[in-house]
Simulated scan of single mutants.
Amino acid sequence: MTDSTESRSPRAKAAGKRQRLTAATARILHEQGVERTTIADIARAADVPSGNVYYYFKTKDELIEAALAEHTRHLEALTGELDQLPDPRERLKGLVAAWVAQRDTAARYGCPTGTLAVELDKRTEGGLDLAAGRVIRGLLSWVERQYGLLGAADPAGLAVALVGAYQGMSLLANALRDPEIMTREGARLVREIDGLS
């Protein structure tokens, strides 16, 4: 028996198609925004016939929820990898390095979760803005935990400052189309983390 597409079970094929749609939604929403993105755009990006999208997701809001879940998975994968580092200071610096590594994407489109959160906040229904906030709260909690392990005096405040700095540098890099803002600000954040006693 082989692992070819033909030999996979219908359930595995459906899960693969759903995952492609989820990943495509996260990417296309980041690149185009919620209002400019159509179901057809997502289907095309996922290489799925447009009509099939509704088999997996009944509404555009369900697709947005799936994209937010994708952002959560990416965050959990990143922090899980960083948690393998023995020192919380190195974990925080690793987080900053991951942000800086995405500088070209940030300069083009901004922060994936931050821009989505801002856009969803403009909508009057659905509560998806709160779902986006939960993704950001997950990041804040992880960062606060690292500062706490370092014995820092206001780990919650430092977490807000660090994540806020990331959102700010992403916004400025995007608005000015200058990825080097991320590089310079990332270096400054690393110096601040190194300077913690």
Rank of each mutant, 00 (worst) to 15 (best):
A187K: 10
H74F: 15
R123P: 11
R91Y: 11
R11D: 12
T22M: 06
A24S: 15
L82K: 09
L196C: 08
T22R: 15
A12K: 15
V48A: 04
G138N: 02
I181V: 15
I42L: 10
L171N: 01
G195L: 08
G186H: 06
A98K: 00
G186V: 03
G168D: 00
S141E: 12
P112D: 01
L95V: 01
A24I: 09
A40Q: 08
Q19H: 12
E6K: 14
T25M: 08
P88F: 09
W99Q: 06
V143Y: 01
R18G: 03
A46W: 04
G164I: 02
V53N: 05
I42V: 12
H71R: 09
L176A: 13
G138S: 07
L171F: 09
L92P: 03
A24E: 00
G186A: 07
A97Y: 07
A40R: 14
G164T: 01
D61Y: 03
F57C: 02
E119M: 07
S141C: 08
K60L: 07
D129C: 08
A69I: 10
R188G: 00
D87M: 00
A66E: 01
R188Y: 11
G151H: 05
Y147L: 08
M182P: 00
M182W: 04
M182F: 02
E31M: 05
R123F: 09
L95E: 06
I64P: 04
T124K: 04
L120D: 08
L63F: 06
R73E: 02
I181R: 06
G126T: 00
V34L: 14
S197H: 14
Y54V: 07
Y54W: 01
L92G: 04
D154E: 05
G157Y: 04
R184V: 15
G157R: 11
R145C: 07
S4R: 09
G151N: 01
R108D: 09
A131S: 14
I193Y: 00
Y54N: 07
L171Y: 00
G127H: 10
G16M: 06
G80N: 05
G195S: 10
G16L: 03
N52K: 06
L158V: 04
E62T: 00
A46D: 10
L128M: 07
A131K: 15
L140C: 03
L85K: 10
R36T: 10
M1A: 15
G164A: 06
L140K: 10
G33K: 05
A117K: 04
T5F: 14
L176Y: 13
